[in-house]
Structure formats: C-alpha cells, structure tokens
C-alpha cells in the first residue's frame, strides 16, 4: 500500500499519521484517501479537481512539478502532500 503523508498545516482535517492507500497514480491514492477523509479534499484539490496551485506533492522523494495527478506510484511508494512555502 502507498503511504500518504499530509503537511502538519492540515492537522485539523487530515490524519496526523500516514494514511495507507491503494492505486497506481497520485490521483488514485488521493481518491482513496479522500473517500475515508472527505474533509481533506477541498484543501488539496480546487473546484475542478486540480491540485491547488500552492500544494507541493513529492513521490518517493521527487517533487512532482507537472501532471501531478497522473504521476505513477508503486505499492511501496511514499507520497507527501505539502504546502509550498510562502511568507506572511
């Protein structure tokens, strides 16, 4: 199972521990996570189900910069859903 970690900034809606999820792409595993944790969805995806502009997704240590949702994962993958840094 893929392990999905969420930024601590989402603690009020996302689990603090990594979530195990199934799927072959980032989209698959997020869909699986959102089915069990629906409150997270709107914080990560926008109205059109795109990854929000200032969300950073890492798969197995690589920052996925294009076509994030289509990025492939394996059952051994670790996915980090993080907040891109900004001031203020």
């Amino acid at each position: 199972m893929v392990k999905v970690h969420f930024t601590s900034h989402l603690r009020h809606v996302a689990p603090s521990d990594p979530v195990e999820a199934a799927g072959a792409t980032v989209a698959d595993v997020l869909t699986d996570v959102f089915a069990r944790h629906p409150a997270v969805r709107g914080y990560v995806l926008d109205d059109q189900d795109r990854i929000r502009l200032h969300i950073a997704v890492f798969v197995d240590g690589t920052h996925v910069r294009k076509d994030i949702l289509a990025a492939p994962v394996t059952p051994a993958s670790e996915v980090y859903v993080l907040q891109a840094l900004s001031g203020g």
């Binding site: 900034h9 926008d46 929000r52």
Partner: peptide, 8 residues
C-alpha cells in the same frame, strides 16, 4: 482565504 488551501 487560506491561500495554499483555498477559500473556506
């Protein structure tokens, strides 16, 4: 307006 996480 949470910026990174959208309008709530």
């Amino acid at each position: 307006n949470l910026g990174h996480f959208g309008a709530k």
